[in-house]
Nucleic acid binder design. Structure first.
Lengths: 344, 344
DNA sequence: TTGAAAGCGTTACCAC
DNA sequence: GTGGTAACGCTTTCAA
């Protein structure tokens, strides 16, 4: 729960009062109700043109901007869609998706707000979000549990959606099929005749949620084929990659699925520095299909991941807001397809 | 100005009312005032321990979460710091800076919110932000003009800060010295004996604001030395880079400052594919000091950019909020220093 | 130690 | 057509 400051900010010499609709009404010589009607284009009531003009002019002159808090307090609901602000760098793919989503939601008259939640533990975050009384909450990744969902719904959120690798009780879930990403990579490597497949598991926090299902996907693809999977913990640092590369030949691998393109670049570089031929001796496959991969030599094979379009997701949010019970709770998303280049 | 929906969302079968402090009071058998005292730890008034417990239990049982809008409406101010949500992928450097800032601000009891402003034109955005009555607004890049600053201040924002390449009238500005970035690169290349320096100008929208000052910085470094600067427009696509590389030798350049590490990678790859030796024939320098650069061969020389620390910026925001007039309006920031590796 | 009441800025319902 | 008025949820004097 957010604490208000113990003592309000000190009033500077001249704190010119913020204009309210009452000020506009006074200046225009009408009532507050009329101001509201004019400024909100209320169609149920007809206001004479001269009056409208006077109101608009007054608002303009005073620099009047309506007070969202007062409005939503009165209305009993807001049009705010809240998302937690990402706390890791977002790639081009995801960034574009976010933009699209935002744009589509604003077309539907929603306001998208990303809430900085660093330092908030689990349910604290949900409580903090709930204080803003968003009409919808959209949470990518993990970080929202059933408790949090409950808090949000209890405080009026009509839609709580998660976008991640696992279902969350009570929320609408867009299930990101990371297993399928690994499966694509595994099946591809198998088809290329590889039999000893390493799978990179990033040591960085929070990535296990994705890397584990991807690993499982590779396992699934190779099951019963005689090909073997080896787990390869790796930190996103040159040194860690160098250590792994140094013992590469002892691992007896002829392929590696490197979690994503960036880890792939890191590892491929280390392998090459160690004299390991790619793809001759070891095939390398990344994921995310970044520009990066096309610039490497050999060009990096990768798993292209297809997120749902921002427009689709926006419409889903809107449907859930309008009728939470009328929309299935789980949606499978995320197409994955291999992009074969030169590294495999 | 945000339109409310013409008709409110249809009430589903059982819209269980959101609990208010009145509900908590009723359940605990006390008055609303007492609830407020207990939940806000108001020190000016002592509440008996049993009563406190009853209130807390009631709040817990009902899943009560205070209503931020009502609170800030009553208080007359909020502790919200608003930033526009970035609409381009943010790199690791900036992302970490944002996290730090957010964390530091939350330590100071502020709530950081990123507002999705795509589709809003210039001053519309400022009006939309102003509706939320943030106590501070922090705008990286351009996108906020004097008009917008005025709107925000008029609606109660005590601090309006911009973080960008140029001053904005009325706002506190953290002047990002992109000129210095170019200057570092230029001076370095000059010291390495280069005389024909190309400077990449990204064609992507919005980057001119940074690339122009960087170009000027290079020019400044080379002025009066006999070395020449050539502008090199470049899109972030392989094909564009290939075209540039194809005519490279006709340009008679022995060095290039590639705007940043990503463009540097793109261009360096194209040059190498064209048979141009780096750094023998042409030196390449990037900027941002990404991990990326260390993985390239030759390792990429780069300009390391030092943003102000999140903590410092948070403290600045806080100082401006407390006393807008007591803080100088313009701050020069952004240290730039060359990191010499192998590509130059 | 607790309670009653006023008021923050809006909008919607009813009279005029 | 237009103008009072009540109410949204909360905090904070002021009284008891």
């Amino acid at each position: 729960m957010v604490q208000l400051p113990k003592q309000p900010v000190p009033s500077s010499p001249a704190p010119p009062a913020v204009p309210t609709s009452a000020d506009v009404a006074r200046l225009a010589g009408v009532s507050r109700a009329t101001v509201s009607y004019v400024l909100n284009n209320t169609r149920a009531v007809r206001i004479s043109e001269p009056t409208r003009r006077r109101v608009h002019e007054a608002a303009e002159e005073l620099g009047y901007v309506p007070h969202a808090a007062a409005r939503s307090l009165r209305a009993g609901h807001s049009r705010m869609v809240l998302m937690p602000a990402p706390n890791v760098p977002v790639g081009a793919l995801y960034s574009q998706f976010l933009n699209e989503l935002q744009w589509a939601l604003s077309r539907l008259d929603y306001t998208v707000v990303q809430y900085g939640s660093i330092g908030l533990q689990g349910d604290e975050a949900a409580r903090a979000w709930a204080e803003l009384r968003p009409v919808a909450v959209l949470v990518p990744g993990a970080g929202l549990g059933p408790q949090g969902v409950h808090v949000l719904k209890r405080s009026g959120a009509r839609a709580v959606l998660t976008l991640g690798p696992e279902r969350v009780e009570g929320a609408h879930t867009l299930l990101l099929d990371h297993d399928g990403v690994g499966h694509s990579a595994g099946a591809h490597l198998l088809a290329r005749g590889r039999r000893g497949v390493g799978v990179v598991l990033p040591l960085e926090d929070g990535l296990a949620l994705y890397s584990r299902p991807r690993l499982e996907g590779v396992r699934r693809a190779l099951r019963g084929t005689g090909a073997a999977v080896t787990e390869l913990p790796l930190a996103y640092e040159e040194e860690s990659a160098a250590r792994l590369a140094a013992r590469w030949r002892s691992l007896c691998l002829d392929a590696v699925f490197a979690y994503n393109d960036e880890y792939a670049m890191l590892l491929m570089r280390a392998l090459q520095d160690e004299g390991v031929d790619v793809p001759g001796e070891t095939a390398v496959v990344g994921a995310d299909d970044l520009m990066l991969g096309r610039l490497l030599r050999p060009r990096l094979s990768t798993v292209h991941i297809e997120l749902p379009s921002g427009r689709e997701l926006a419409e889903l949010v809107d449907r859930v807001v309008r009728d939470p019970a009328g929309v299935p709770e789980v949606h499978q998303v995320l197409g994955a397809r291999i992009v074969h280049r030169e590294s495999s």
